[in-house]
């Protein structure tokens, strides 16, 4: 079992997965932010590989990616930073990025370096199920990495089941038909979708992401799934911060409130 699987074996509720872009706001902030998030009570970290053309991302993550790239961020550096953080923390880390980056790095080499750096799982939003099954499934599972595929309000049930079958660790439930970015609140039609998927009895736990931004939306998501993923709202907090460690502590406390689960 990797750290993601261990986490979900221990805990099926109130999972807080925080996304941020590696190399943002400063090139050397990655390790510091990971450690601070762990200390503050995040359950899981989704580490973004900054990309020039992040198709599924809104302005906040686009901008953080541009800054990180301007800072000089590369995949090689990312692996070094993750490795350094791994020496001091056991928090599960999922890498999120676009498939072109993996291709250019060399797929097998990329998966090997993930494992060496203590990465536990992958989210590659533009790697479709078909290509995954055809070419990459065995490489990724042999490396012992988890992979999470996405479902959306438009995903038909048969495909949700397929996503569940192919995902390892958790299924990424996109909260709304949208790119990433903070929204105000969660609409009734979204709740109906959360409920519908909740009743399917999937083998994987689900984390809800996109548009989860504060304690209220986090708690609401936790009623329908094992937890939630927060990205843009945290990036915004980092962008305004004088001290990124303090910002990470404050942000997680703001989401968790006092009732911090084990």
């Amino acid at each position: 079992m990797n750290r993601i699987q261990q986490l979900f074996a221990r805990q099926q509720r109130d999972i807080l997965n925080i996304y941020f872009t590696a190399g943002y706001p400063g090139l050397d902030d990655t390790e510091r932010i990971i450690l601070a998030l762990d200390k503050a009570g995040a359950s899981l970290i989704e580490l973004g590989m900054p990309y020039s053309d992040p198709l599924a991302d809104g302005p906040t993550i686009q901008q953080s990616s541009q800054v990180a790239l301007k800072n000089g961020m590369t995949l090689q550096l990312l692996f070094e930073q993750a490795k350094a953080a791994r020496k001091r923390s056991e928090i599960p880390i999922v890498l999120m990025g676009y498939f072109n980056q993996v291709m250019q790095y060399g797929e097998q080499r990329f998966f090997n370096h993930c494992v060496e750096a203590g990465i536990d799982g992958l989210i590659l939003p533009d790697l479709p199920l078909y290509e995954y099954e055809r070419s990459y499934q065995s490489m990724i599972s042999q490396a012992g990495l988890s992979i999470s595929f996405l479902i959306t309000p438009q995903t038909p049930e048969a495909r949700i089941r397929k996503v569940d079958e192919l995902s390892q660790g958790f299924v990424y439930m996109v909260a709304d038909s949208s790119i990433t970015g903070a929204k105000s609140g969660i609409a009734d039609r979204q709740l109906a979708y959360f409920e519908r998927v909740d009743k399917l009895g999937l083998k994987n736990p689900r984390l809800i992401g996109f548009g989860i931004s504060n304690r209220e939306t986090f708690e609401l998501a936790c009623r329908y799934a094992s937890g939630a993923i927060i990205g843009s709202a945290f990036i915004k907090a980092l962008s305004a911060a004088a001290d990124v460690e303090q910002a990470a502590l404050d942000f997680v406390r703001g989401i968790r409130g006092s009732a911090r689960p084990v």
């Binding site: 599924a56 939003p125 790697l127 479709p128 290509e131 479902i151 959306t152 038909p156 038909s177 790119i179």
Partner: peptide, 11 residues
Amino acid sequence: GGAYIPEMLYA
């Protein structure tokens, strides 16, 4: 070729 698209575009 192919279709390397995020799931949100699948439908």
